[in-house]
């Protein structure tokens, strides 16, 4: 009798163990609603939103700034691996210290942020973070969460300008949830390391940011849902560098970039 009881117990454990394992490895709830919006559709959506947003914004161009952005994006994109996105990184004239990620790999950096960062490496950290949001498809996930899939898909059938305006607003509000911010941070740390930029730069950037603006500041929307600035600083500092890590300096004269921005403003 005893032996048979133990055998039954074993059977039960095996049954439930198998159920657990099976549903772990073959999840029946694919949370990939985001797959319904393939990248090419996302890029189309990005174009529509960009058109909408750029109507109110002015792009900032100076040769020094353009080449700095070019160097930064080339350095990062070279190390990002396979990607479905065609990135378009623009600087727009806006006082806020902010950067926003739009669908389809469109990243807008505000000129206020350019003024704020102290080196091209710091700006790379921010751009890497935004690339993380793109690659991890946070933008589309956010839009699906806010609007629902049906409405989002309806953009592609009818060109409803009001709807596009709304989507543009949501997309540029840059509010990601904490989990997504954390993921994007992790992505950025890895990308920076691969690109030969010391990921600790993120820590110093965040520290300066909270020193300057306190922990929460309205213009810092892209940090306000932060997993608390301190923990982000900590994560950046704790990030393990590979042993063969070799720090490279970006060939950018940051002071000149800033200076060019000021003369551009004055002109």
């Amino acid at each position: 009798m005893r032996a048979s009881i133990f055998r039954d117990l074993l059977i039960l454990l095996v049954i439930f163990g198998v159920i657990w394992a099976a549903f772990t490895y073959f999840p029946i709830f694919p949370d990939e609603k985001v797959l319904e919006i393939p990248v090419d559709k996302e890029e189309k959506l990005g174009e529509l939103i960009m058109e909408e947003l750029m109507a109110d914004m002015e792009e900032t161009n100076t040769p020094a700034l353009d080449s700095a952005i070019y160097v930064i994006s080339e350095t990062l994109l070279e190390n990002i691996g396979l990607t479905d996105y065609e990135y378009d990184i623009k600087v727009v004239n806006n006082e806020d210290v902010n950067a926003i990620t739009l669908p389809g790999g469109n990243i807008l950096i505000f000129s206020g942020l350019i003024e704020f960062v102290e080196s091209a490496e710091e700006l790379s950290a921010v751009v890497a973070h935004e690339i993380g949001h793109v690659e991890l498809r946070h933008v589309v996930k956010k839009l699906i969460k806010e609007l629902g899939l049906t409405i989002l898909l309806s953009v592609f059938t009818g060109n409803d300008p009001v709807l596009i305006h709304e989507i543009g607003k949501i997309a540029s509000s840059t509010v990601f949830d904490r989990r997504q911010e954390k993921k994007a941070d992790e992505y950025a740390l890895e990308l920076l390391t691969k690109s030969g930029i010391n990921p600790r730069i993120m820590a110093s950037f965040f520290r300066r940011l909270s020193k300057e603006y306190g922990d929460i500041h309205e213009s810092l929307e892209f940090l306000s849902t932060h997993p608390n600035n301190n923990s982000r600083i900590k994560n950046a500092l704790q990030y393990k560098l590979p042993e063969d890590f070799e720090e490279k300096k970006l060939p950018v004269d940051w002071e000149r970039v800033k200076a060019s921005l000021n003369t551009h403003d004055n002109s």
């Binding site: 439930f16 159920i19 657990w20 394992a21 099976a22 549903f23 772990t24 490895y25 999840p27 029946i28 709830f29 904490r178 989990r179 954390k182 997993p227």
Partner: peptide, 19 residues
């Protein structure tokens, strides 16, 4: 702790429902 809702957790939840 704002960890991820992992597949392991989802599998466990389904197992609990089945149980």
């Amino acid at each position: 702790t704002e960890m991820e809702f992992s597949d392991l957790w989802k599998g466990y939840l389904i197992m609990v429902v089945v149980a």
